[in-house]
């Protein structure tokens, strides 16, 4: 398919290279032969109507599907050139480098502090002073520090939904991943909390490569540098966000952008 060719002039090096990716739920094929390049230090948005496979696609990028029996993934996802689905690759170490933020905030039922230092701890960091540093740095980068610095030992479940989601982002940042996957991170939040998350994503791309699933085209337009459009398991088109939104190459993309799909 012509339209699935990678972006012609990548501004940066390719961080993630997806090649011929297929995902099956049992017999049902949810992603069909998707290929795309995710450029480093840029925000790439995945858009499309619900059920189009964008969430399925993003979960294939750090092998989250391994957790669900009955899901099979075929094809290649290369992180800096190395296939994460290769033989002898431990998915655990992949997820260390490719973090994920989920649709609904899912803080652990622990304190705010324990949530942030969870990742560094399980990866072997035990020095208390360093953990405290990591915690502060993570929360600062997630723009949450000022709101919670006096209540680090309170339960994370007492935070508002928007704060919880930023905590989940801080939690991911604390393990210093290279890529951050976000699966509709603002869909459960109110507009103010949403705009805070969007500002944050704009900040994050200086240090990280971000892939974000969103059901909101406005959101994709506001925050992303590249946009890819999914429909019924097919990756229809990928390009710079301005190209995809202003002069889509594919008729189906145009129909979706102009609101002719649900």
């Amino acid at each position: 398919m012509l339209s699935t060719e990678p972006v012609t002039t990548p501004v940066r090096a390719t961080k993630l290279e997806v090649k011929d990716l297929n995902v099956f739920y049992g017999e049902f094929q949810a992603i069909k032969d998707a290929s795309m390049d995710v450029p480093e230090n840029r925000v790439t948005a995945l858009i499309g109507p619900s059920g189009c496979g964008k969430s399925t696609f993003i979960r294939a990028l750090n092998r989250m599907h391994d957790l669900s029996p009955g899901v099979t993934v075929k094809g290649h996802v290369r992180l800096d050139g190395q296939d994460i689905y290769g033989k002898d690759v431990d998915p655990v170490t992949i997820r260390h480098r490719i973090g994920m933020v989920f649709q609904r905030p899912n803080p652990f039922p622990k304190t705010i502090y324990e949530n942030v230092v969870y990742g560094p701890k399980i990866h072997g960091l035990s020095d208390r002073r360093k953990l405290a540093e990591v915690c502060e740095r993570g929360l600062r980068r997630a723009a949450l520090w000022d709101e919670v610095k006096d209540r680090l030992n309170e339960s994370a479940l007492d935070l508002s939904g928007g704060q919880q989601q930023r905590l989940c982002i801080a939690r991911v940042l604390a393990v210093e991943p290279e890529v951050i996957l976000m699966d509709e991170p603002a869909s459960a939040l109110d507009p103010i909390a949403t705009s805070k998350i969007e500002d944050l994503i704009g900040e994050l791309k200086r240090d990280y490569t971000v892939v974000i699933v969103t059901h909101s085209m406005q959101q994709a337009a506001r925050i992303s540098d590249f946009t890819s459009f999914f429909l019924l398991g097919d990756l229809i088109e990928i390009g710079t966000t301005s190209e995809v939104f202003t002069k889509p190459k594919d008729k189906r993309t145009e129909d979706y952008i102009t609101g002719r799909y649900g």
Partner: peptide, 24 residues
């Protein structure tokens, strides 16, 4: 599959991965 560049970063960075894998 393209040949994997030999210069690629190894998946295991400074980590206790082998220890954790053993515990698991």
């Amino acid at each position: 599959t393209a040949t994997t560049p030999s210069t690629a970063t190894p998946f295991v960075r400074k980590d206790n991965a082998s220890q954790r894998r053993l515990a698991d």
